[in-house]
Design a protein around this nucleic acid. Structure first.
Lengths: 336, 336
DNA sequence: CGTAACAAATGAAACGATTCAAAGACGAGT
DNA sequence: ACTCGTCTTTGAATCGTTTCATTTGTTACG
């Protein structure tokens, strides 16, 4: 009772063969009622717990799926992770989460680790250039699904969100409100931000007389947003945009702080404001913030599905799923 | 090359015994330079990766530590988790994070899972009553450390934060500013909140002429805070408290929104405001929010240390470490 | 009573690493 | 040439499970 009992101990205690105990656990139908009861009783009495290492060794594969994200603290990733976990649980697998923290060496560390663990597959939101490693993994029978990044379809599968479409949705919404002079706040040097801007520009192009000006923010934080907001307040009313689209919610909250604090401009009457990501705080802002929500649950769930497809096809067929983000309208863009 | 090579394949390829390959990996000094090079070359050529399952099976224990938190999305826990991971990595272990989501059955699920994995130990922020299970685990040689909850020292070790002291610090700080009529906002029905209130009352009791009124909030959110804030604005100036201590930052941000929005009250001149937890948003608030910071990194790090101690002592010696939270002063309580 | 048909139980082999007692290689000292 | 000691290398045994070809037991039927 002191340490852990093995299947052999259970067999002895229940006076059956080890194979029978194993059958009770894995194929209960093959075992007669009588013996089954006896074995289960022994298991309970000895407090037997399966040794997963031995199981995996025999099986040649683990019931584990590796997930490497850029930052677990980021709500986007923690939400994706949770959805993936739930989907995996339904399939009898477990998700191990590794946090690369945007660091290529940590990323590599987790890839090594997961390889040693003989994971069923890998979901990864890559930092560095992992193309070569993914090829190696595939050769070794470890399918990979890229998360939040469109993949080369003859290399591996991927799930991602259409940032351009998100930008289009946001701008279209502002235009639908009747606003014509729009402003975009963000740092277009970031790939995702550039796509969002591009989508917004497409929407603007579809409406005659509409324009969009780009205000490059210093960063992606509330503070940067506040700076941009201050610069807007200083403008004369006719020079101000009628609507502002920020490439993320933090920026939008910053802009909102400036505008409401200085009292000169009203949201949404004078300036309609929309963010991106739909973080928890968006709904609790002074003026509840409209935003673009990314389907994180769907991302996580689908990533697991694609992994399963990869496994079934033996890593030969790849598929890329691109999701469309969703517009969430709140008070900051409400009314006409 | 197709699938994964085993140590035996490497041995054959390098024309040595399996034991030698193992020695190259684990005790390089025992192997001559010549053979070592040959073996390493074979390892590289075959793309050999250790099979962790086999390793663990032989070793009888994994290099894994289980961590069960109430919510990975919560910055408090994600920060603790990260610190624990880093500390574990330094010891050559890996942390597996399970999210119970405050659900006792999920919690139990992860405990089972970790037991099957033969983890070195368990760090847990419990939902249900896990006392009995922890006893069982200890008997089986799996040491446990309670996180964010003081433990019965003859059962297991624990790391936690002194909430009462945190409340004391916050109230003391407000009193030191010269404020006498304080208000406490929160839901004292929650254990941690009650402790914080108790600490605040202690601080108030030490100053003659000081008082603290308790404003029970509906919830723990920005919205609830806003409601309380509105009720304060409606009061006549002489009936308003001179300082407000909120049991968490979300509440404080809500209160701040009401006060600044309605323009009648100035922070910190008329009302000094302090929160609890020091979330990322605290610094980005319209008026940067003073708060009480919990030493999450220390919690995570120490949890791993205590686990190591437990392992060394064979699970006989237990220790509880209680941390003192830290006051973070910002503009919302600045000035005289 | 014999035996075919089926159900249940058995136990050895295998998974891939580590460990360790034993064997082998080599030089130095006598 | 022989012995002793040191440094390398060897390979069988082991960990705990699953698998599967075999054996054992039971029932039904001619």
């Amino acid at each position: 009772m002191s340490q852990t009992a093995s299947i052999k101990d259970v067999a002895t205690h229940a006076q059956v063969a080890v194979g029978t105990v194993s059958n009770v656990l894995n194929y209960p139908d093959r075992v007669s009622q009588r013996t089954k009861e006896r074995v289960l009783k022994s298991i309970a009495e000895l407090g037997f717990v399966r040794n997963d290492a031995a199981r995996q060794l025999r099986a040649g594969q683990s019931r584990t799926i590796g997930l490497i994200v850029l930052d677990v603290g980021n709500p986007f990733f923690s939400s994706v992770a949770r959805a993936a976990e739930d989907a995996a649980t339904a399939l009898g697998s477990v998700v191990l989460v590794g946090d690369s923290g945007q660091d290529a060496s940590r990323e590599a560390h987790y890839m090594d680790l997961f390889q040693e663990q003989r994971v069923q597959g890998l979901l990864i939101s890559p930092v560095g250039d992992v193309g070569a490693r993914i090829d190696t993994l595939r050769e070794r029978g470890v399918p990979t699904v890229l998360v939040d990044q469109l993949a080369d379809t003859d290399r591996c599968s991927s799930v991602s969100v259409d940032d351009q479409e998100g930008g289009y949705l946001a701008a279209k919404h502002l235009l639908d409100l009747g606003r014509r002079r729009l402003a975009f706040v963000g740092t277009p040097s970031i790939r995702q931000v550039a796509s969002r801007l591009k989508g917004a520009q497409r929407a603007v192009g579809e409406v005659t007389g509409a324009s969009i000006e780009v205000l490059d923010s210093a960063g992606q934080t509330v503070l940067s947003g506040r700076q941009v907001g201050n610069s807007l307040v200083e403008r004369s009313p006719e020079e101000r945009p009628e609507a502002v689209f920020c490439s993320n919610d933090l920026l939008a909250l910053g802009v909102m702080q400036s505008l409401t604090m200085l009292r000169t401009v009203k949201i949404p009457e004078d300036i309609a404001l929309i963010g991106y990501d739909d973080i928890d705080f968006a709904i609790s802002a002074v003026v509840p913030l409209s935003s673009i929500r990314q389907p994180t649950e769907a991302l996580g769930r689908t990533a697991i599905e694609l992994l399963a497809e990869e496994q079934e096809s033996g890593g030969t067929k790849h598929r890329s799923v691109v999701f469309t983000p969703e517009l969430v309208v709140r008070q900051s863009t409400a009314g006409a």
